[in-house]
């Protein structure tokens, strides 16, 4: 009767069968899935024992569900029992992630649910391969791709290109990764930033810009991205555009800030255009602690 009702509503048969399945143990699983023999060396296999008291023999079914019906199908995909095994790789976002969140709900995943990635049906298995040998050379935790950045580029292809521009952070050189600034597992703030704001994110490496300063430059205090594009730029210092146009976006008053600097009005080698432009004089653009620093030039 129950099965008839379930069938009537078009629900999966697997739920019924999966509930009926019993544990068979890892040895049975490895009988067919011998390519996962190395899972014994996987950090998951070790942690299950140490943290949860789950022996290796039970490790497969901890995530995939009891496998007796699947095993009994003997590889016959037409057999209804074959599909009773849970394969997160074939599940939709939230259902796939639920398997991992059994143990990983805390930590950096504290705000996973409701995050941008969760709401867009991205799941753990889109980036992570749980069966990878050991800890992937330490470069990244069980990632399918060679690096965290390569994982992100799967969807954020434009960033892969942008980071190759002339002014860039050392992502291409492998000295930092996307996760230095973003928490792909969920964050309370926009853009999945690992810190509360863009400036706080930048202060992780640029502590010298943190101040507090006697003379603050308001946009530097509020949002570094007003002037810098952290993903790469045509301009030096990853500026969104060059000086003086960058500065003139806000400063159009009081004589020289509003001067229409062009090819003829001033020599291109002028100290207001060449090299750092406005910053040749107003160099304390991130703030000054000098009593004579109101114009950010000391």
């Amino acid at each position: 009767m129950l099965a008839a009702i379930i069938a009537m509503f078009g629900l999966s048969r697997t739920a019924v069968f999966a509930a009926d399945a019993e544990a068979v143990g890892a040895a049975t699983c490895l009988g067919c899935h011998d390519k996962h023999e190395s899972f014994k060396k996987n950090i998951h296999a070790k942690a299950l024992v140490n943290a949860k008291g789950i022996e290796f023999e039970k490790s497969c079914e901890t995530c995939h569900g009891n496998g007796s019906l699947h095993a009994a199908a003997g590889g016959n995909k037409e057999d209804a029992g074959f599909a009773t095994i849970k394969n997160p790789g074939n599940l939709k976002g939230a259902a796939a992630s639920a398997t991992c969140l059994q143990c990983h709900e805390g930590g950096k995943r504290m705000h996973w649910q409701g995050s941008t990635h969760d709401m867009k049906n991205v799941s753990c298995v889109d980036c992570h391969g749980m069966h990878a040998d050991k800890i992937n050379g330490g470069k990244a935790p069980l990632l399918k791709k060679a690096s965290a950045a390569d994982s992100c580029y799967q969807c954020h292809a434009e960033k892969k290109a942008q980071i190759r521009k002339s002014g860039h952070m050392p992502l291409v050189e492998g000295k930092m990764g996307c996760t230095g600034c973003h928490n792909p597992h969920g964050s309370p703030v926009d853009k999945l930033l690992a810190k509360n704001t863009i400036p706080e994110t930048c202060y992780q490496c640029h502590q010298d810009k943190r101040g507090p300063f006697m003379w603050d430059h308001a946009p530097a205090r509020e949002n570094c991205a007003t002037c810098h594009d952290p993903h790469g730029s045509h301009n030096e210092k990853m500026l969104v555009t060059r000086s003086p146009q960058l500065c003139q976006g806000c400063h159009v008053g009081g004589r020289h800030p509003a001067t229409a600097y062009g090819n003829s009005v001033s020599d291109l080698a002028s100290n207001r255009l060449a090299y750092k432009g406005c910053v040749n004089c107003h160099f304390a653009v991130h703030g000054s602690n000098n009593p004579s620093g109101k114009w950010l030039n000391r």
């Binding site: 434009e158 290109a161 003139q248 976006g249 159009v252 004589r255 800030p257 509003a258």
Partner: peptide
């Protein structure tokens, strides 16, 4: 392979003081 084209345009209006 990959190919990306991007273009940014910023318009600025000012006045000589």
């Amino acid at each position: 392979g990959y190919y990306t084209f991007d273009m940014n345009s910023r318009y600025l209006k000012s006045s000589q003081t």
